[in-house]
Design a binder for these strands. Structure first.
Lengths: 251, 251
DNA sequence: CGTGTTCTTGATGCCTTTCAAAAAGGGTGG
DNA sequence: CCACCCTTTTTGAAAGGCATCAAGAACACG
């Protein structure tokens, strides 16, 4: 057993990455995984509430979220803040910031998170040496844009109740694909302020609508665990297409 | 002069593309441009109001918008529609739809448009054979996501007047980089319904806010030409950071 | 067990939506 | 060139969703 194959400064070796076993992810060749391993230079922890990438940062690294939740956000000069999308384990973190010269947004750890660190420059190596992976990185970028599209549609077209329903059903499906759901319940670490910032609603109105939906039996919340009491109804309330999501690459 | 070098079925040859002369775009090596030329299989016109890519389409091609305006949109099952972002000449059209298995959105021609057509499969060739271009394609994808981020922030955080100000100042800057602005004025082909769908506002409220801003002297509109009477004020009203935008690649 | 944060609840007002209909363009055919 | 029809834009009035202000309740933490 060589040094790269047991947990150390670099964490679990990529070939043994437990995330790969989740239904959310596609199989990958050993060669590709080994290449990913050579790109990874660190395994890092960031605590809840801290920025992983701060707005305007020019030397952002690329990460894969190994554990925990994070979110991308964008602030206006006067302090108003919009949460753009949430990041769950296996998601690529900071691709846009790595490609563009400066981050146009911030990324904050929602819970304590572990990150697989890929230096900014090696992203270019990946494009030169591993077109399959480069293609998949772009694919993941498009998937993220797709999620932002969804959120924009939600904030632009749905009312408060529908927005909440759309958000929790989407997170439910994503958590489910990661094996984080049991009995329709999953850990839900969002504060109401963060909910409000994601939904484009005021804190007060978010709270009122949130508790109304809970009173009406759409979901329950106990000990930080959100349980959907009727996922199908939730999807219908959100006026959402029920999409089946194919497995995605894990870089 | 060989057949590829004069306008024909494929339109103006890429090496002589007039768009490349605009300040919006970076210089590119002749080798890259020649490769782009080999990828281009057609030069196509789509009329205003028609879909370039329709929602759910599984075999979407990749395009570069050669002339005219278009927009990406997403509809809910009950018919509500959100315009996600606008596409101007030089923008890549359909990247997300080409990468993902099916288009999660539609793309509609806002005016009559001309498109440079790149078959879906050749996108993969590009990743294998031209990593520089692949990197730039991804870069353009991130740029588009960045614009959607902006719009989401606008719809989520700004009031009606601010949203309009933010939209027109952004379009103004993009048109300017394409040399489409003279005396602070540029062709503005949006209907109020489309404005409303982009801003996440009702048609009526859009109309009222739109004419209020015009009455207040923010801009004028005559003969389909929008003139910003005070661009700096417009940016301030939008509570927007004034960003300098670097030239981008033209594929 | 205090203290600061987060969540809840009530009251008030305004921004935005909805309903409805008139006005203004734009294109076509007589 | 004008009558006619259809689409787009404008305007008014009323209702409601959501924001804001304010303060109490619940919760976390040292």
């Amino acid at each position: 057993m060589n040094i790269a194959s047991r947990p150390g400064r670099l964490g679990t070796p990529c070939l043994a990455c437990p995330l790969r076993l989740k239904p959310a992810f596609r199989d990958k060749s050993d060669e590709e995984i080994r290449f990913i391993q050579t790109m990874k230079t660190d395994h890092r922890t960031v605590h809840a509430g801290q920025d992983i990438i701060h707005p305007g940062q020019e030397d952002a690294e690329l990460y894969t979220l190994f554990s925990g939740w994070a979110f991308r956000y964008k602030s206006l000069p006067d302090g108003r803040r919009q949460i753009l999308n949430f990041l769950l384990p296996g998601d690529l973190v900071g691709l846009q910031a790595s490609l563009l010269s400066a981050a146009e947004h911030g990324i904050e750890a929602l819970t304590d998170v572990e990150l697989c660190v890929f230096p900014r420059k090696r992203l270019w190596d990946l494009f030169v040496r591993m077109p399959t992976l480069a293609y998949e990185v772009s694919w993941l970028g498009s998937r993220e844009e797709c999620m932002v599209d969804d959120n924009l549609t939600s904030v632009g077209q749905r009312n408060a109740g529908e927005r909440i329903a759309a958000l929790i059903i989407a997170l439910y499906h994503r958590a489910d694909a990661l094996g984080l759901v049991t009995n329709n319940g999953f850990d839900f670490p969002l504060s109401q302020q963060q909910l409000a910032d994601a939904l484009g609603l005021s804190l007060v109105h978010t709270s009122k609508t949130w508790s109304r939906l809970r009173r009406e039996g759409l979901f329950s919340l106990a000990g930080g665990k959100l349980t959907l009491l009727n996922p199908h109804l939730t999807a219908r309330m959100a006026a959402a297409y029920e999409r089946i999501t194919a497995p995605r690459p894990l870089i």
